[in-house]
Amino acid sequence: MSTCRDCIDFLCDYLDNSLPESQRVEFESHLAVCPCCRTFMETYRKTVEMTGGCQECDKKTYPKLPEDLIRAILSARNGAAKPVGDAAGPGGAAGQPLE
């Protein structure tokens, strides 16, 4: 792993701690002498951190489910409460009334 290209190819595995020991040693040897790859790795890591923070941010503002959508879903369920032949697919509540 002597080039920046090799280093960047293994970046994801390195940060996941899934790089085999011998490759990890090579990776870190390259980082030790290549400031470009060190900076690149930090910005890559930051990208992953920033992306991971988006769900937390979303949790504060979950969208309100439109009332007509709630009614439509309930209607769909009630409409199919009696056994429906085609709905009895594998893994579903085949032939079992939902009410």
């Binding site: 002597s2 400031p35 900076t39 930090e42 920033m50 988006c54 941010c57 979303d58």
Partner: peptide, 26 residues
């Protein structure tokens, strides 16, 4: 051709904390 980066990346500023709000980052 030698496998080395064509341009050097710039370091990033703090971003995720002091400089950008969570909403701005998102």
């Amino acid at each position: 051709e030698d496998g080395h980066a064509k341009r050097s990346p710039s370091p990033w500023r703090g971003g995720n904390g002091a400089e950008l709000s969570a909403e701005e980052t998102r």
